[in-house]
Amino acid sequence: MSNHKYQGGCEHVEVYSDAEPIDNHECHCNVCKSVTKQHTTHVVFFNYGDLKASSEGNMNRVPFNAENPNGPLEICLCKDCNAVLMLDDKQKRIRVAVPNVMNYDPAPGPASYHAFWDETKGYPKPDDGRPVYSGLRPEFAWPAGA
């Protein structure tokens, strides 16, 4: 891999950014739980044009949310090795990295807050000093799409 501020991917497709993320949270949503099989997922949003792939033609795309297959997010997978590369927004607002799933080295710093937590999850509210919200942080504004 080349030398970028943040980079991940696989031996066939490098995913990278030299820009800072616009959001960095620990996600508690059921879709992330279903897709990653993790209790919580470190999720990093970049402006759409700031997260790039070395070979976008070498990616297969599948719906992120099986219960909403026509939703805006798609999981991008390497056509050669099936590695998870990034989430791509069909509305071209954001691209998403999941550092521990997408082999980021270096990775954006730790999540700054907890998103999509609610008491129906069946586990205690996080108590690690970071803010906890029922959605994205209140001041988050979705970028304009293309």
Rank of each mutant, 00 (worst) to 15 (best):
D18Y: 00
V101T: 04
P99D: 01
W117A: 01
Q38S: 14
S17E: 02
C32T: 02
E74S: 13
P108G: 05
S54G: 14
L87T: 01
M102L: 11
A97K: 07
V101G: 03
N24V: 00
P106G: 02
H42Y: 10
G109N: 04
Y123P: 06
L77A: 08
Y133F: 11
C81K: 15
N65L: 10
E139C: 12
V35M: 10
N68M: 11
A146V: 13
P131L: 03
C78D: 09
F116E: 05
C10W: 09
P63N: 12
H28R: 06
G122W: 02
D88I: 07
D127V: 00
L73I: 03
H12F: 03
D89Y: 04
G57D: 14
S55V: 02
I22H: 12
A97Q: 03
Y6S: 08
P108N: 06
C81Y: 09
K125V: 05
P69S: 08
D50V: 15
M86G: 03
P138D: 08
Q7Y: 00
M59I: 04
G9R: 03
R61W: 09
E119K: 10
V35P: 04
H28W: 01
M86E: 12
D127H: 08
N60I: 02
E139S: 15
L87E: 09
G122T: 09
H4E: 09
K125S: 10
E11P: 11
P21L: 11
Y16T: 02
G9C: 10
K121N: 08
P72T: 00
A141Q: 15
I22D: 12
E26T: 04
P106H: 06
R137G: 02
D118H: 13
N30G: 12
A146G: 13
I75S: 04
P99C: 08
R93W: 03
G135T: 03
V13H: 14
L51K: 00
N47D: 12
Y6V: 11
P126L: 03
G71F: 12
F45K: 11
E139H: 09
P110W: 04
S2P: 05
N100P: 07
Y6G: 04
A115H: 05
